[in-house]
Design a protein around this nucleic acid. Structure first.
Lengths: 223, 223
DNA sequence: GGATTTAAATCAAACGATTGATTAATTCAT
DNA sequence: ATGAATTAATCAATCGTTTGATTTAAATCC
């Protein structure tokens, strides 16, 4: 959208905004919010220090902008599978959708190098209450988790909003997140020098197996 | 308590050390290492700022001392069950030991208020490579995970050091950790105002169910 | 359509506040 | 008296933010 009236080169401000957010996500994820200086962000983004205050009102504003970007990014990965599609009323379709979403999420979180910083950023924000946490919950966790519960309920025949399904959905999603967080520990214990598509495939196999086992074990007898 | 303003009663140095470590773990866990100032730590511990440099050589030394304390604390919780006991060669005993260790760990991580900071501290350290991470892995992750693999191998009849068991052990342990990390999100989604023994019981029920399901689903046919 | 105005955007420089660390003097039990 | 332990005070460095000037392109005017 051309919300711009005047400016420098066409959309130069937007370029700087994006560069700052991208640089900040990387640094926030790798070193933490407080450990990252505004000068460091500006240098990595190739921008001036004052541009942070100009575009985002300050370091905290940039933090929130990073959260919005991260939420949009993850929704783009898992959303197209789990949010838009309609399982109808077929348990097998629902199960397939769950598996597809989980594998897509695992691919993104484990394979993409950018996902390391994105995940670290999110985990840090989740640990501390604040505006960012509320935004992440409202725009990402709640809609995705609700849909996952709906699919799990359909796949198992259980109440989609019962304790079993709602907590079970967290335990499934949590597995993927954990393999990203504890990536360094896992690689060390598995004696992996590098983590390529082969190693990721083995992790995905375990996750997939756990999902299928969960659905099978908790499936009610169909009428 | 006779801890007093100036001077030092017998063994006052150790008291100050402990107070500093305890205060630092709480602050590091809640706010992060870089976000916590040495003045803040000293104030919470009722000590002088210079005592950090005197006892630990600096802020980094205090960080490492915190890691050692955390490792010892968690080993005390999960170690007495999983590290010392001997399952013999009975798969049922091995399965029971796994369940007991997991439930003990869940009780500690989810119920104790101190565990919130301890877990947050560990997660932060795991995300960033360094001396602290190496210590945590060598003294905690590796011995506990290895023993867990041994028990899982015994319970299922699978190779204890195969990919399935080693990664499966991470997925089991990861569940517990995740419910601590994502505690705020889980409570929000479950519409829990407070998280007491009742809510923790429901989480533990799901974890326990997942563990039993994992063992049952991956058990080889016994000869 | 050339001159002028307006506003978005960037820049170098500096602000006060706070950081971790260090110092030298002091305290108290042995 | 000796030495472990604590204290107040101070250090240089860095923090996030602010400032005023400058640059650039689009909007406005005659």
């Amino acid at each position: 959208m051309p919300a711009r009236s005047t400016g420098q080169p066409a959309g130069a401000g937007e370029q700087t905004r994006m560069a700052l957010v991208a640089a900040a996500i990387g640094l926030f994820g790798a070193k933490g919010f407080e450990a990252t200086s505004t000068r460091e962000i500006a240098a990595k983004a190739g921008a001036n220090i004052a541009s942070i205050a100009y575009h985002f009102g300050g370091k905290d504003g940039l933090r929130l902008a990073c959260a919005e970007m991260v939420v949009a990014r993850i929704r783009g990965v898992v959303g197209e599978v789990i949010l838009s599609s309609d399982p109808g009323d077929d348990p097998r379709v629902a199960a397939a959708m769950i598996e597809a979403a989980a594998m897509g999420m695992a691919d993104f979180l484990l394979a993409r190098s950018e996902a390391r910083d994105i995940a670290a950023f999110m985990v840090r924000e989740v640990s501390a209450p604040g505006v960012v946490l509320d935004r992440i919950y409202a725009d990402l966790i709640y809609p995705v988790h609700s849909k996952l519960c709906q699919l799990l309920g359909l796949a198992t025949g259980q109440d989609p909003e019962g304790d079993l399904i709602r907590l079970g959905a967290f335990s499934i999603a949590g597995q993927i997140v954990y393999f990203r967080i504890g990536h360094a520990l896992v690689a060390k214990r598995m004696q992996w020098q590098s983590v390529g598509s082969d190693e990721i495939g083995r992790i995905k196999a375990v996750i997939l197996s756990n999902i299928r086992t969960f659905i099978a074990a908790n499936a009610r007898v169909m009428p």
